[in-house]
Amino acid sequence: RRLHLVCPMNTSPHVDPQKSGHEVWEEFAHSFTPAVREVVEFGKKIPGFRDLCQHDQVSLLKAGTFEVLVVRFASLFDVKDRTVTFLGGTKYSVDTLRAMGSSDLLNSMFDFSEKLTNLGLSEEEMSLFTAVVLVSADRSGIENVNSVEMLQETLIRALRGLITKNHPNESAIFTKLLLKLPDLRSLNNMHSEQLLAFKVH
């Protein structure tokens, strides 16, 4: 039975059956590493992030990188055409990916991407929202919760201010955005389960 790695952070869902599990994993890691580095660079640019202790910077990035990538790469999910574009540039239909063994996670990613895209946020709004996603004081292993909480509150205030300024007649947008945070947590948990299944396999 052929194996597939149905993650758009891979160049392609097809896995070479001649390669060992370790080689497959190495190739996959090679594929997603640049995107992870971009998340770290993004984190560094958040005002106040570099003032957090090193341990907490790493903890926030470890816990939040997947969620930041989901937000940044929402455009890979074409809701209208029901296709996913992998990092290699090829589009695959949901049906094709389903036949490859994709899980409910894929459908949930589509739902999330659709709702986020429908909010019609500007690049600046999306960037600030992404900062709020990354700086969450309730991530596990945070040492200085107060510092992270203070930064989180500052970012949320800034996001509310920006949304209110840009969308004076659409006050629900800010609430809808905050409600995306638990959605992202849920996706993150589903993704972790998928990783476990893949590694065990």
């Binding site: 992870v36 580095r37 990035l61 470890k62 476990l196």
Partner: peptide, 27 residues
Amino acid sequence: FSDPASNLGLEDIIRKALMGNLEERQE
């Protein structure tokens, strides 16, 4: 599987990417 980031090798990538910046701060 309580720490998927470590299992993915993410922690190593993150630490290396942060390192230059952190070294700058220490200086």
